[in-house]
Amino acid sequence: MAVLVFADHDNTTLKDGTNKTVTAALALSSDVDVLVAGKGAGDVAKAAAGIAGVRKVLHAESDALGQGLAEAISGLIVPLMAGYDALLTPATSLGKSFSPRVAANLDVAQITEVVEVVDGSTFVRPIYAGNALETVQSSDAKKVITVRATNFKAAADGGSAAIETIDAGPGAGKTAFVDQQIVKSARPDLTAAKIVVSGGRAMGSAEEFQRVIDPLADKLGAAVGASRAAVDAGYAPNDYQVGQTGKVVAPDLYVAIGISGAIQHLAGMKDSKVIVAINKDGDAPIFQVADLGLVADYKTAVPELMDALTAAGK
């Protein structure tokens, strides 16, 4: 069995979701190749070649691949799948946008957001916002899988795979890139961060969100997340959303401030190791999952937390 892993990256840096997906792939087969599709992504290909256990890196370059256009990526992958029995893609927005296309073109099911590999055809995946875990067995000859990376350990570095340059494929066809706005941040990536600080509707404005959440995150070296309510209201950018239909995170520490804990939010963070919640409503459902809950107004509690962290040498 040979497995192709799609590398998650931003054309400059390889994301750690790739290493985690390689771990899932190695549970299926020892013949694991990584595809780096991008533009000016030579460093990414080198980094992928350094993941322990990787057999070979395939590297394709074009504008459309670098822009993450689903048609271009699936058009590149579908013919490659003649040589593979499975495609594993980290379940990022990009992965979610092209992987089902590959599955449909191969006439196979997609097995979505796999959290556990049971055997070569059996997988566990969450359904109903993580309120149930479904074990499914695939009868398809080829498996097209998206991987919930947070459920797998990152494969270590130390490999030295060969890099093979391949043709960029057919391009994006009838989809044209216009532009994009990417929020640049010096903070760690939300899905890979060891600590995440998230703010909710309680913040009341974008200014307040930044005034309260950002310094706390910076003090902790944390990534910033948000509830849907905070994103919908414009307090935080869309890609901060943690939850069933946003990002799934599982850091060592998750700090929820002014977030009620709706099931859709819990779906995105309840696998965190330690959960801290600050909420003025003692009955908020977030407290049912919080290891450390503080019933308080964030306006006084967050400054106190900052002071306590300073006192603790943070």
């Binding site: 993450g68 927005s93 990009l94 989809t175 216009v178 990417i182 890609d239």
Partner: peptide
């Protein structure tokens, strides 16, 4: 809505 922000396509 994409990873990292927003993208416009035609």
């Amino acid at each position: 809505e994409i990873d990292g922000g927003l993208q416009t396509v035609e």
